[in-house]
Structures are given as structure tokens and as C-alpha cells.
């Protein structure tokens, strides 16, 4: 079926089986490879995007649900060359190691800061439950606090 939505500010119409996970439409249909496949079971969070501002794990989201919605992926987080506060903080804290899980974490963090502009450590623990194997959580926590500051200023 045909499904239309906005992705990173652009309107798109895609032709796909309605139950195709949004992840594959984004990655293979639209060629936006920043959203990652980690588990396909909504367990790791590497595929996190925003749908109407909320964090959604796109591997477990049938594309039909995206009809008429607004999607943001890591490619749409920055405004042109200007980094999003979350990306800026990620750079300043030198967070990534292998980097594979990072887009999912950054998308989840961006959604968190929209809901909770000054998250406490507990807020972070409760809302950011993606999986990172390199163990960058320690720096991510610092980067999340830093992003909150950058966003406020």
C-alpha cells in the first residue's frame, strides 16, 4: 500500500507492505542508514527514531502506523551543519566508541529532553534503556546533562 508521512521535514510517499517495519523503509527504502538494526525485537534501541516527537523503536513499528505522522531520524536531528544540542554534547564528551548504538541513544535523549528539560540521574536511568556494548553509559550520562545545559542556553 501507499503510505505518506513527513521524514526530517520532507514529505514522503512510500509503497510497501503495510506491516513492513518502519526501520527497513527508512534504511533501505529511503536510504537513511543512520537508524540502525540491532535486534529487530525492540530490545536494544539502536533503531530509535521520533514519531511525532516521541521515541519509537522503528523495528517494531509497522509502516502503516506512520501514515500522516512526522518522523525524525538521526539525519534530521541537526539543522544543516549545526549540531543538535545532544550531538554537540556527544562531541564535547567524546561519547562514541564503536558508535553503532549511538544514533538510537541520541534520538532517545533528544526525546527525553523535550519532555524533561533538566533530567535528574534517575530520570535518565528510567527513560534511557537502550543497550551499548562498548560501555559508553558513563560518558552518555555526562553528555545528557551537558546537552540539557546547551539546550537551555
Amino acid at each position: 500500500m501507499k503510505i505518506s508521512f513527513t521524514i526530517n521535514g520532507k514529505t514522503q510517499t512510500v509503497e510497501a507492505d503495510e506491516n513492513t517495519p518502519l526501520l527497513w523503509v527508512i534504511r533501505d527504502g529511503l536510504g537513511l542508514k543512520g537508524t540502525k538494526f540491532g535486534c529487530g525485537k525492540a530490545a536494544c534501541g539502536a533503531c530509535t527514531v521520533q514519531v511525532d516527537g516521541g521515541a519509537v523503536r522503528s523495528c517494531s513499528y509497522a509502516v502503516k502506523f506512520a501514515q500522516g505522522k512526522s518522523i525524525t531520524t538521526i539525519e534530521g536531528l541537526s539543522q544543516g551543519k549545526e549540531l543538535h544540542p545532544v550531538q554537540q554534547a556527544w562531541v564535547e564528551e567524546i561519547v562514541p566508541q564503536c558508535g553503532y548504538c549511538q544514533p538510537g541513544f541520541m534520538m532517545a535523549t533528544a526525546a527525553l529532553l523535550d519532555k524533561i528539560p533538566q533530567p535528574s540521574d534517575d530520570d535518565i536511568d528510567e527513560n534511557i534503556v537502550n543497550v551499548c556494548r562498548c560501555g559508553t553509559y558513563y560518558r552518555m550520562r555526562k553528555a545528557i546533562h551537558r546537552a540539557a545545559k546547551i539546550k537551555q542556553s
Binding site: T73, L83, G99
Partner: peptide
């Protein structure tokens, strides 16, 4: 020195094996 692969990694650039097309 900040790691030199920071930029592609925070921008979500297609640098991994799974991203190859």
C-alpha cells in the same frame, strides 16, 4: 585529542558494514 571518527559517529553517517549499499 578527540577521536577522529567522532563526527561521522554523531551524525549517523553510513560507515558500518550493515550500512553498505
Amino acid at each position: 585529542i578527540p577521536r577522529i571518527d567522532l563526527k561521522p559517529k554523531v551524525m549517523g553517517e553510513p560507515i558500518f558494514g550493515l550500512d553498505v549499499s
